[in-house]
Design a protein around this nucleic acid. Structure first.
Length: 497
RNA sequence: GGCCCCAUCGUCUAGGGGACUAGGACGCCGCCCUCUCACGGCGGAAACGGGGGUUCGAAUCCCCCUGGGGCUACCA
């Protein structure tokens, strides 16, 4: 039998990295076993669910490459895939349980329930006492007709329930610790534990992979499967992802929702790779940078760790950097374009254009400085942002230029360059060699003044790469002028006075 | 309060009674490369939460404590 897995988020906010890891593990397992991956929207909480979050979550999933075979936005034979559209199914099922005597109407008021909880006996779990458990059905029905509101509660049996969790191992609990829980609320909407079971069963889900928080609720669900006369699926619960301080990951830890990472210039394959590593170790020691295909191939649900993992941005950065290096340069060039555009340094760039090729070259020059694409602009500044009048005043620049022979090197280079047309790497090097010969400056006494004249900074890209970018860039339609090398040297000399 | 889960370097982890002077990765530190900053290469510091057992032998098995987390809702 083919496996069927699902990701079932509530559209109550943006997709959190923890949710994404859950989705990912489901997806990896489904893809590995050539099964189905289903997206179900759990929006029974009408108060908190919003359709814009549903849109956003599907958008994030698509960006990550976690495609689904059935579900919201996709359709499929087991639909509808939105719980708010499945109320009939829940009501029918509840009715069946009512008739079988496995469930009953409960007329308890919120106040009564609150009192029950407060009246808890020391050493005993506080729980619903089952006041209406043995209420006569006809009586219940007539009270309903008289307009009284009632919930439908499940009659929890005695004894023990058990199941084997793929991650946590065997779990067994005493049913006495489980209160008769609500199936249908008084407004006839389903309660979570009931809806999941009805849906997972109805959708033919074979493996339920979800957050650890659901582990304690699983016995209730197993009980439900049992009275519905259905085989429960395989369960696998995933530990929580923690923040740097050991607490649950939250806004104060910085970015937590996947769209934030996306906007900062993390690659989807890097997010997927890093999240996969949080709670699972690849089989080959030391090989942690894996492609999506490799993850699908090696992923092993049975080897997922029980203990919670801390989200570490430093390691994510390393993973991202590594994947960035794996991508073809011209591809990354296109990906980083929006970030440069934000700084006003770039216009529209067409795919396959010389501009894209140039961006690829820019990328290769700045790649070693960058963890994320949103850091590209600050390291590209030397290429786009050239203002001698302003920058000659900067402390580090003044200091560097006050060194012996610095200006002479620059003046000599200026003379050498004026004699040349457009520069390529070779002619630039020839000019530098000529400067070296006629001034006698070498090593840092030669290159440092050159760097400052060309960039108005004391550190940055290799000069060879820079000159090449400048000379090519000045002829391209980048939407922002790039000042060439020769022009720069001249401008610096002119701004000196 | 009750029930349940978890616990190896700062972080992610390998480990499933002797192969452990506890291995790898990120980060950190040092050296090398070098016109700068980086990249890269090489090397280094860094952990079995505590206490009891079991055993010839425990990071590995059991119990207690401590510390985290979850459930205990007409939230999911």
């Amino acid at each position: 039998m083919s496996v069927r897995l699902r990701f079932a988020p509530s559209p109550t906010g943006h997709l959190h990295v923890g949710n994404v890891r859950t989705a990912l593990y489901n997806w990896l397992y489904a893809r590995q076993h050539k099964g189905d991956f289903i997206l179900r929207i759990e929006d029974t909480d009408a108060e908190r669910s919003e359709s814009r979050f549903e849109e956003a979550l599907m958008d994030d999933l698509r960006w990550l490459g976690l495609d689904w075979d059935e579900g919201a936005g996709e359709g499929g034979a087991a639909g509808p895939y939105r719980q708010s559209e499945r109320f009939d199914v829940y009501r029918e099922t509840a009715q069946r349980l009512l008739e079988e005597g496995s469930a009953y109407y409960c007329f308890c008021t919120p106040q009564e329930l609150e009192e029950d909880r407060r009246r808890q006996v020391k050493g005993e779990p506080p729980r619903y006492i089952g006041r209406d458990r043995d209420l006569d059905r006809d009586e219940a029905l007539s009270r309903m007709e008289a307009g009284e509101q009632a919930t439908v509660r499940f009659k929890v049996r005695g004894g023990r329930v058990s199941f084997v969790d793929q991650v946590f191992g065997p779990v067994e609990v005493d049913c006495a610790t489980i209160a008769d829980f609500v199936l249908l609320r008084s407004d006839r909407s389903p309660q979570y534990n009931f809806a999941v079971v009805v849906d997972d069963a109805g959708m033919g889900i074979t493996h339920v992979v979800r957050g650890e928080g659901h582990l304690s609720n699983t016995p209730k669900q197993v009980l439900l499967y049992e009275t519905l006369d259905l085989d429960p699926p395989q369960f696998a619960h995933l530990s929580t992802i923690l923040g740097k301080d050991g607490g649950k990951l939250s806004k104060r830890h910085g970015a937590t929702s996947i769209d934030q990472f996306r906007r900062r210039g993390y690659l989807p394959e890097a997010m997927v790779n890093y999240l996969a590593l949080l709670g699972w170790t690849p089989p080959n020691e030391g090989q942690e940078i894996l492609s999506v295909e490799e993850l699908i191939k090696h992923f092993d649900l049975g080897k997922v760790h029980k203990s919670p993992a801390t989200f570490d941005t430093e390691k994510l950065n390393w993973v991202n950097r590594s994947h960035l290096k794996l991508r073809p340069a011209d591809e990354v060039g296109l990906l980083m374009a929006p970030f440069l555009r934000e700084h006003g340094w770039l216009g529209e760039v067409e795919e396959g254009s010389p501009e894209q090729e140039w961006l690829g070259e820019l990328w290769q020059a700045v790649a070693k400085y960058v963890d994320r694409l949103d850091q590209v602009p600050e390291h590209s500044r030397v290429v786009f942002d050239f203002h001698p009048k302003r920058d000659l005043l900067r402390e580090e620049v003044r200091e560097a230029l006050s060194e012996d022979g610095a200006w002479r090197v620059i003046e000599t280079l200026d003379r050498e360059l004026q004699a040349k047309d457009d520069l390529d790497l070779e002619s630039y090097k020839a000019a530098v060699n000529a400067v070296k010969d006629s001034t006698g400056a070498k090593g840092k006494h030669l290159f440092h003044p050159l760097r400052v004249a060309l960039t108005l900074r004391t550190s940055g890209l290799s000069l060879d790469q820079l000159v090449s970018l400048l000379e090519k860039g000045k002829h391209l339609q980048l939407g922002h002028p790039v000042v060439g090398a020769r022009e720069r040297v001249r401008a610096v000399l002119e701004a000196r006075s």
